[in-house]
Design a binder for these strands. Structure first.
Ligand SMILES: [Mn+2]
Ligand SMILES: [Mn+2]
Ligand SMILES: [Zn+2]
Ligand SMILES: [Zn+2]
Lengths: 151, 151
DNA sequence: CTCTTATTGAAAATAATTATCATTATCAGT
DNA sequence: ACTGATAATGATAATTATTTTCAATAAGAG
């Protein structure tokens, strides 16, 4: 596995991991390489298959462990889909939400929701202390729309 | 297990199941009784424990199968939480969203989000065809706030 | 270069869910 | 009510996803 000198998302992630006190290994680098530069929601098994091509003796367990570290460090987040919530994408920077393609699992990010007033109202009415919210859009990305039209 | 003549949520659910072509059994009735009259997000194993008290020879497998039927019929929905998405609540009637207590898993429903404009804009910008959205609030219900204050 | 110890992969263990199958029970049609 | 086709059931086994254990390895501070 080659070391990269130029600044990529992957190297930034590795720096962040190191800054968090984790040691960097070939296995770590392979997983990071796969997940960091990627816009699809990936499950551990898929990440394993891709990353093993970069680090052939990689074990699936290490994928789970690395994902834990990445989540802990705030570099990845889980994506909740209809079937389950076992896929990951690069964490949205700042307050953003996800736009998920139901066909290919591509993920994009968006911001601009303004619901504080509604949240305040709902919280007051119910006596609920609202700590967080979660908004996700589902649909078909442009690529999958074309495929559907053709197919 | 007694038959109920008065109209409860549970009997309405049973009618809906029957109308969908399913046969009604004691096992079905027990699961429905537990889930229909309940405002907490429940996992299959929890439902199993409660429902077995109403129908002692109930098997866990039947809980899974009944939940499938209830989901199919639109009577329950999955609740997505931080740990996972394997808990169920009565489906929100119409276009409503969930308010979930992080401490006790109590679920309430709310409506009134107005995000069509944002969704239209995001969709246009990205070439995404938006089919659905998903909004959920997390926090502490009034009961759990008091408990937390008491300590 | 050395030493401490975090990290690794193989294997086993655990947990969650699904498939198989013989038996039972629902309910539509008499 | 009775009957028969068959949906539903529970016990068991199988599968899948994830976590734990542990001895060997390798990162990186000093
Ligand atoms: Mn928001
Ligand atoms: Mn809405
Ligand atoms: Zn797509
Ligand atoms: Zn609560």
């Amino acid at each position: 596995m080659l070391t990269q000198n130029n600044t990529t998302v992957a190297t930034e992630w590795l720096d962040r991991l190191k800054a968090s006190g984790y040691r960097l290994t070939d296995s770590t680098r392979a997983v990071v390489q796969v997940v960091a530069e990627n816009s699809f929601a990936l499950e551990p098994a898929q990440i394993f298959i891709s990353a093993r091509q970069l680090s052939p003796h990689l074990g699936l367990v290490t994928v789970y462990r690395t994902l834990d570290k990445l989540e802990e460090t705030g570099l990845v987040q889980r994506v909740h889909q209809l079937n389950g919530c076992h896929a990951y994408v690069p964490a949205a920077p700042g307050h953003q939400h996800l736009l998920v393609c139901r066909s290919c699992s591509r993920v994009e990010y968006f911001s601009g929701d303004d619901l504080d007033e509604l949240f305040g109202q709902v919280g007051r009415e119910r006596g609920f202390l609202i700590q967080d919210h979660w908004l996700q859009l589902y649909g078909l990305c442009s690529v999958c729309q074309k495929e559907e039209a053709a197919g």
